[in-house]
Amino acid sequence: MSENVRQRVESFSPPAPFSRGEGGAHSCQAPLSAGEGPGVRFRPAVLFAFLPLLALAGCFSNNRHQGEKLYAQHCASCHGDQGQGLERLIPPLAGSDYLTDHRRELPCLLHNGQNEVMVVNGVGYHNVMPSNKGLSPAQLTNLLNYIESHWGNEAVPRTIHDVQAQLDKCR
């Protein structure tokens, strides 16, 4: 009986990925077959119960932290990994009144950058904010939602539709 099951395990091949994404952000990889490690014993029943779950989890978690990843990639070097800014050189994002006061302008600010004096929490800043023209409306939405829901910021989540509409009005 147990030999029979083991044979089934050995002949089992991992399921094909549901879809192969084009870019890294959307790639959906099926997990490796769990029985491959030498010397590790699995109960076949448990293994079969978890395989589909693992495969599904691999596909659904890809874009979940896109905002956080984009923040680390495009913003954290200046604004800090906790949105703290840098003294009076770079304005903070954590607890920043600018985010709430200029909420509707933020998609354009991220897209185009800016080079004018900006007052945040009563302090004037004049450093250059670079543009981020490579970010899609969906990416900007995830990025803004991440910023606006961390470090004490509590704004209503944005939709891609809203962000797109605001981007259309950018000068």
Binding site: A76, S77, C78, L86, E87, L89, I90, N127, V128, M129
Partner: peptide, 15 residues
């Protein structure tokens, strides 16, 4: 002074 890349991070670490 106007470096938008690595400088703020580097200067905050040196600080």
């Amino acid at each position: 002074a106007t470096c938008p890349g690595i400088c703020p991070k580097m200067q905050s670490e040196l600080l």
